[in-house]
Computed example of a mutant assay.
Amino acid sequence: MAKSKRRLSDEQYEAELFRLQAEMVKVQEWVRAEGKRLVIVFEGRDAAGKGGAIKRITQYLNPRVARIAALPAPSERQRGQWYFQRYVEHLPSPGEIVLFDRSWYNRAGVEHVMGFCTPVEHRRFLHQCPIFERLLVEDGILLRKYWFSVSDEEQHRRFKARVEDPMRRWKLSTMDLESITRWEDYSRAKDDMMVHTDIPEAPWYVVEGDVKKEARLNMMAHLLSTLEYRDVPLPEIAIPERPASTGYVRPPRDHTNYVPDHVEGLL
Rank of each mutant, 00 (worst) to 15 (best):
R32C: 06
R32V: 11
A33M: 12
E34K: 15
E34T: 14
E34F: 12
R37P: 13
L38T: 12
L38E: 12
V39Q: 05
I40Q: 04
D46E: 14
D46P: 13
A47T: 14
A47L: 10
A47V: 10
G49N: 04
G49Y: 01
G52E: 10
A53M: 05
I54F: 08
I54E: 11
R56Y: 11
R56F: 11
I57C: 07
T58W: 09
T58Y: 10
Y60A: 10
Y60T: 07
Y60W: 12
Y60R: 14
L61M: 15
N62K: 13
P63D: 08
P63Y: 06
P63Q: 09
R64F: 00
L71I: 15
P72C: 13
A73G: 07
P74T: 05
S75E: 02
E76L: 06
R77G: 12
Q78W: 02
Q78F: 03
Y83K: 08
F84S: 09
F84H: 10
R86L: 06
E89W: 01
V98Q: 06
L99H: 01
F100C: 06
S103F: 03
S103G: 10
Y105Q: 13
Y105N: 13
R107S: 08
G109C: 11
E111W: 07
H112R: 15
H112V: 10
V113H: 06
V113M: 09
M114S: 11
M114I: 04
M114H: 05
G115H: 14
F116I: 10
P119C: 04
P119D: 04
V120K: 15
E121M: 14
H122P: 09
H122E: 10
R124T: 13
R124M: 05
H127G: 05
P130T: 00
P130I: 05
L135W: 07
L135D: 07
L136V: 07
L136Y: 04
L136D: 02
V137T: 11
V137D: 01
V137I: 05
E138W: 00
E138S: 11
G140K: 08
I141Q: 04
L143K: 07
Y146A: 09
Y146P: 10
Y146T: 11
W147E: 00
F148A: 03
S149H: 13
V150T: 11
V150P: 03
V150H: 02
S151R: 01
E153N: 09
R157G: 03
R158P: 02
R158V: 02
F159L: 05
F159A: 03
F159Y: 08
A161Q: 14
A161C: 02
R162Q: 04
R162D: 03
P166Y: 04
M167I: 05
R168L: 03
R168D: 00
R168E: 07
R169W: 01
W170L: 06
K171F: 01
S173M: 02
D176H: 00
D176S: 00
